[in-house]
């Protein structure tokens, strides 16, 4: 199934990415080619096959409900592009 310009723009919006016109053209052709290769999977009948999301039979891993240490706030904030009074600072959200 060929990917359209509308698809690329819609997906980019969902993924919070922006592309130039030229990049969009390239993505249309690259994604179409890759997705048509993926169509190969339709050769297989998987009606009665269970999907695998995880390879090991590990389920519901809990730890004891005890308080443990956490990372110091100043160290975490040290990586922030912008901060103010112990908070992460972002551009204005509400008009």
């Amino acid at each position: 199934m060929p990917v359209t310009l509308k698809d690329v723009e819609n997906i980019a919006m969902l993924a919070k990415l922006r592309f130039t016109q030229e990049e969009k053209e390239r993505l249309i052709s690259q994604l179409s080619r890759i997705l048509s290769y993926f169509e190969k999977l339709n050769e297989l009948d998987t009606t009665d096959v269970e999907p695998t999301s995880h390879v090991l039979p590990i389920k519901n891993v809990f730890r004891d409900d005890v308080v443990t240490g956490s990372l110091p706030r100043d160290q975490i904030l040290a990586n922030a592009p912008d901060q103010w009074m112990g908070y992460f600072k972002v551009p204005k959200v509400i008009e």
């Binding site: 993926f38 999977l41 998987t46 096959v49 999907p51 695998t52 999301s53």
Partner: peptide
């Protein structure tokens, strides 16, 4: 979903 099923195979 299809890819997850093929993963099982």
């Amino acid at each position: 979903r299809k890819a997850q099923k093929v993963r099982t195979l």
